[in-house]
Design a protein around this nucleic acid. Structure first.
Lengths: 340, 340
DNA sequence: ATGGGCGAATGAAACCTTTCATGTGACGCA
DNA sequence: TGCGTCACATGAAAGGTTTCATTCGCCCAT
């Protein structure tokens, strides 16, 4: 049975008191060498393992932070996770990795789990802008940092400016002379999607283009499968009504669309140009290397964790900050390649 | 402060006893409607949140299982994770996702964490074949299922036959007439790598080929960056000593190699053929669609979780099983494409 | 009117660790 | 010899939940 031996058992076996065992575990410098050896031997012999639950109960809090992302299957988030874990581990914190799969109910569920676990704080890439459940939890004192979504003044966040990202993507397409552009992404209640679309519209308007020639093709999710599905729809359009370029809300969608275009015998970028978002590792390795909007991912994770730790450890003096990184356009073959 | 209100506070506020509150929470059918309403109102007003640590302490065990993978950045594992989470959630279990990053010390660390948390069990894709620490933990009663690595009779496992996978990969290359083949992968203490290499050697020998013409190029990790690095080395070889085909221990390596080949102006499969392993989503979408050995990923995750749950809930009658799935070759352009 | 039966509510005990005020014994110094 | 110091060691208390043997209050049958 896991954990059958308790501190009490160890104490009995070593012939010392309960408190002494605890001291060996937590403040070994206060214990005599001989006693320490006895206790350590007893621990070894009994296979004693600390009970974290009891420890936590006593301490009133855990040594865990939560990382709640929209999609663990998306390399964008696993790269962030790498940065988070690295920074957290350096502080002796464990990371509980949770996947909302872009669903509000799952996000709420995990928030409850984290609160019941008395997590120190949560890094969350929220499904929607304003989750009342998150508000309650914060009101009860849990630290929270929004990741990949800009917060208002009353909360910390780390994000990349998605509106700017949308702008530079579409400005690039305009620059390359595409007349008809489609935005592919969804669900639009995701902030990333909404912001990127807003940026796209900004750039379109700024260039004095006809609003009706910027189509929005809404997908149900941000993964390769949805991209393929939408690719099918695009391929099925009569060539004259088909957009000359599509701006996808993330690289997974873009790769899906690309795959389907290739399968249907359409040339990229000849028949249709594609631009993605995130610049994940696979974007460069795609059938047609993908133009994409790059975000500093690991840095995002590190910055978020640092903010969270600050909020946890200096709750009184802490001032909320909204860190915003700038995205960067990486031009590849899928929109005609770099001009020389 | 999160969780400042306890069951006791709720009881006081509702004017009932401690036990009644607990009953409302856990066996609502035993409580009168009126009392229930009072208690629920008090919970609402105080913002009471269950303290999972205390609950666990009392219960002696958690409602959590661990999933300890070699690399969360690898879609192969996140696909498995999806299957695991789905199955676990259906049973009301939480999944603690841990990343050993292919390092033994991190694996051991997470195993300790899981044991201290009194996790019900662990799904582990082990760094090496035989981790004594895992043995100890199992001896103390924790359930464990090996994922992506075949166990001996005394333990459950879910895996895909990597030796067969290596065989079909290299058999395919032999079939296509390649004389010089290189195996790219590492570190070789990873079982997946060792087995795939063993399979490759089997196929090579079975075809009566000269052992010296099957080169092994060892990498330090199984990711895109390592693949690129190795790609550089391969591209730098004099054409006559360069292998005509490389078999990569996973798709990330293969994509890295492919990327570097393209960058260096080498044609795939003309100058060099590439075959990967895992058939992740991105394999099909690669610059040159990648021939790969497919594993049933989500199924692997589901099967593993089912085995684990069985081991947990019927520890006495449980018989260890080693489920082995068969891999499947998916031929694409990187080895010349499907023959018609 | 009395007792049996029943649904509902009670509260002490247990789970395991950590902390802290207290206790013990040895040693050195006056 | 007696006292103060010091280094360790002690064990009761606290932390929040669940469980379970009891008790309570009420209605119905006798």
């Amino acid at each position: 049975m896991a954990g059958s031996a308790s501190v009490k058992d160890v104490a009995k076996r070593a012939g010392v008191s309960l408190g002494t065992v605890s001291n060996v575990l937590n403040r070994p410098e206060r214990v005599g060498q001989e006693t320490k050896d006895k206790v350590l031997r007893a621990i070894e012999e009994l296979g004693f393992v600390r009970n974290e639950a009891a420890r936590q109960l006593r301490a009133g809090r855990s040594r865990t932070i939560g990382l709640l992302v929209l999609d663990v299957g998306n390399p964008f988030f696993t790269d962030i996770a790498a940065g988070v874990e690295e920074t957290a581990a350096a502080e002796g914190l464990s990371v509980l990795l949770c996947n909302s799969a872009e669903r509000q109910d799952r996000e709420d569920h995990y928030l409850s789990v984290l609160e019941e676990q008395r997590a120190l704080g949560v890094l969350i890439s929220p499904v929607s802008g304003n989750n009342p459940h998150l508000g309650e939890i914060r009101a009860r004192g849990m630290a929270a940092v929004l990741v990949d979504h800009r917060a208002t003044r009353r909360q910390c966040s780390v994000s990349v400016d998605d509106v700017v990202g949308g702008e530079i993507a579409v400005a690039h397409l305009i620059d390359r002379g595409y007349e008809r552009v489609a935005f592919v992404g969804g669900p639009t209640n995701l902030n990333q999607v909404a912001d990127r679309l807003a940026g796209a519209r900004n750039a379109w308007r700024a260039a004095g283009r006809d609003e009706r020639k910027l189509t929005v093709l809404e997908t149900t999710a941000l993964n390769v499968a949805s991209g393929r599905q939408m690719g099918e729809r695009i391929a099925a359009m009569p060539p004259r009504r088909r957009p000359g370029a599509v701006f996808c809300a993330n690289d997974l969608l873009a790769l899906g669309v690309l795959q389907e275009m290739t399968r249907q015998g359409l040339d990229v970028p000849g028949d249709i140009a594609i631009i993605g978002y995130d610049d994940i590792d696979f974007a460069a390795a795609a059938a047609v290397p993908l133009t994409s909007v790059r975000q500093p991912r690991a840095q995002l994770g590190r910055a978020a964790t640092e903010l969270l730790i600050e909020e946890i450890s200096a709750a009184d003096t802490h001032r909320h900050r909204q860190v915003v990184f700038e995205p960067e356009l990486v031009v590849r073959a899928s929109t005609g390649g770099a001009l020389d």
